[in-house]
Nucleic acid binder design. Sequence first.
DNA 1: ATTTAAAATTAGGCTAGTCTAATTTTTAAA
DNA 2: TTTAAAAATTAGACTAGCCTAATTTTAAAT
Lengths: 216, 216
Amino acid sequence: MQTLTEENYLKAIFKLAQNNLDKISATAIADEMEVNAASVIDMLKKLKEKKLISYDKKIGAKLAPQGNKLAINIVRKHRLWEVFLFEKLKYTWDEVHEMAEQLEHIKNPELADRLDKFLEFPQFDPHGDPIPKANGNIPEVSKILLADKKQGDTCKVVSVKDTSPAFLKYLNQLSIVIGSKIYIKEIISFDNSLIILIDDKECTVSEKLANSIFVK
Amino acid sequence: MQTLTEENYLKAIFKLAQNNLDKISATAIADEMEVNAASVIDMLKKLKEKKLISYDKKIGAKLAPQGNKLAINIVRKHRLWEVFLFEKLKYTWDEVHEMAEQLEHIKNPELADRLDKFLEFPQFDPHGDPIPKANGNIPEVSKILLADKKQGDTCKVVSVKDTSPAFLKYLNQLSIVIGSKIYIKEIISFDNSLIILIDDKECTVSEKLANSIFVK
DNA sequence: ATTTAAAATTAGGCTAGTCTAATTTTTAAA
DNA sequence: TTTAAAAATTAGACTAGCCTAATTTTAAAT
Ligand SMILES: [Mn+2]
Ligand SMILES: [Mn+2]
Ligand SMILES: [Mn+2]
Ligand SMILES: [Mn+2]
């Protein structure tokens, strides 16, 4: 049985692994989890001891099969709970992440599957992230950023890269939601800000914002 | 903000207070929480420091207004989550308590009210315990035990005193559920065991069982 | 090949919550 | 009232996770 903290480390390593970096270093984990690198080293030893990861300073941290399975289940629960909070309890997409951070640690072997069934097997969470299947498969999703698109392109918002309330509330303000149609009217070469039409309503957004939205 | 552990102590004190004992001693709390009395003394100091309780060895522990409010909210969340698990996720009544022990600590100011609304304002949890209202009021329920009834009496199961899986599974086996009609055919004077009709089906149960079921 | 910077690691210390093993009160019984 | 049991408390120690402040190792840049 893992502690809540161990689960959070596994999840962080899993998340970093998605970015296909050449290695997952202790400092990268420290940065992701907002803890000190010394704390990370301690925990990496512990997780290695439990055979949930491998770790070597040259190679970095890697999830072992058991650790990977655990991490995927945590992500699955996190995203299912987010759907629950959003769909059933009517929280907004900027409110659900914080609670899901707590709910993902609720222990019960059947919980994920029961929630999944109750929610009628949702494919994506409120931020557009794919929900791992019971067998561990994770549907592929677009990794194209709005910032990768060119002037004149039209695309559709599929997910957000950042789930901070500050960012999501700004998107609310701009009426950008999952599924919004975006037409790129102009890219300002000075600072790469974009003049776009969001479902036909014009507005200007920064390059930073365009780097935080995935589209297809 | 309280830690999960502090919340569990407040809840234990709240629970003991329901039994109208003359005082809530450190040992009673230790017994309820299955920890050592030395640990309890440490925590009582801390909770007193935070003005959540009063404590004096002669008078015992008492919830201060703020501590009482917190305790009721935890109980409210516990019971609402039990309803959710039972009604929506189709867990059995012997499975819900353990998960609710975890879920009751999920932090969000609106959570209890949103769950309450989603569940359509249930009055009782799957064990027949009353769910505190948003304002803190707790509906009164029968405190009459099956063991208090006499030969020839007919009554109805309103709640169970014990939520251990072992007990609840035994009740499943006997087909005793909340609402079951029980007729007391005979009380054996030798050991106070009871021959009863449960919704017209005859069986024999121990005094211990009769002391664990509330009826009206 | 040096020098410098970043990353990894170790050492030591802190808090929360737990324990065991005394010790001191308090209460109850003889 | 003396004695014995129960309850309360203190002292000291342990673990998990975290930190800061070195120190060591590795990688990069001159
Ligand atoms: Mn999230
Ligand atoms: Mn999400
Ligand atoms: Mn319960
Ligand atoms: Mn209950």
